[in-house]
């Protein structure tokens, strides 16, 4: 598995970080990247709605945040507002002829997107991708969230984070 690109989306679907590690993919304009990020964000939300209806019966995972009375009870008991973006079962991955794309959403709604080389053995690559996501999340927590000059949901400009992501990509 070879990493082509890494994107990070904030919880509103805005592209806050992109790193094109490999020139195998087409280079798009800055605007197209924003559109791409927005599209993936939208598809993820639609996918979360779609999954229960396809099977109809055993859908317990995605509906947790949708019941208003349960939400209110939670709000009253804990004082915390339920984040509307807690669905974790949206779009997971895309497989195409020339690349695979993986999406991981953190509990806070940040989406990490990996674009990798295609691989016929998907199951193995899924494991590799989730491993990479774990490392990436750790890097994000350490070098972006702990950066005192970083403001939330804004583009990530940290050079240190760039460097660490480069190191991670070299290892994969």
């Amino acid at each position: 598995m070879k990493l082509y690109s890494i994107y990070i989306l904030n919880k509103a679907g805005g592209l806050i970080y992109q790193n094109n590690l490999d020139p195998s993919l087409n280079r798009l304009t800055a605007n197209d990247y924003l559109v791409l990020a927005g599209t993936l964000h939208g598809v993820h939300a639609i996918a979360a709605k779609l999954t229960p209806t396809i099977v109809g019966k055993d859908s317990t995972s995605t509906t947790s945040g949708t019941d208003p009375t349960a939400n209110n009870a939670l709000l009253l008991s804990t004082g915390k507002v339920q984040n509307s973006n807690t669905n974790k079962t949206g779009l997971g991955s895309i497989e195409t002829d020339l690349f695979n794309l993986y999406v991981f959403q953190s509990l806070t709604g940040i989406k990490f997107i990996l674009i990798t080389s295609p691989n016929p053995i998907l199951q193995k690559q899924h494991e590799q991708a989730s491993e990479t996501f774990r490392h990436l999340y750790v890097l994000y927590s350490d070098y972006v969230m702990k950066d005192p000059f970083y403001s939330l949901d804004m583009p990530i400009k940290s050079q240190l984070f760039d460097l660490k992501v480069g190191e991670l990509a070299a290892l994969v």
């Binding site: 195998s24 791409l36 195409t96």
Partner: peptide, 22 residues
Amino acid sequence: TAKLLFGILYSLKNISGKLAHT
């Protein structure tokens, strides 16, 4: 269900066509 599925499919098809070509 079919409409949602088609919407997802259409968007993803666009993305995959845009990002790479042989």
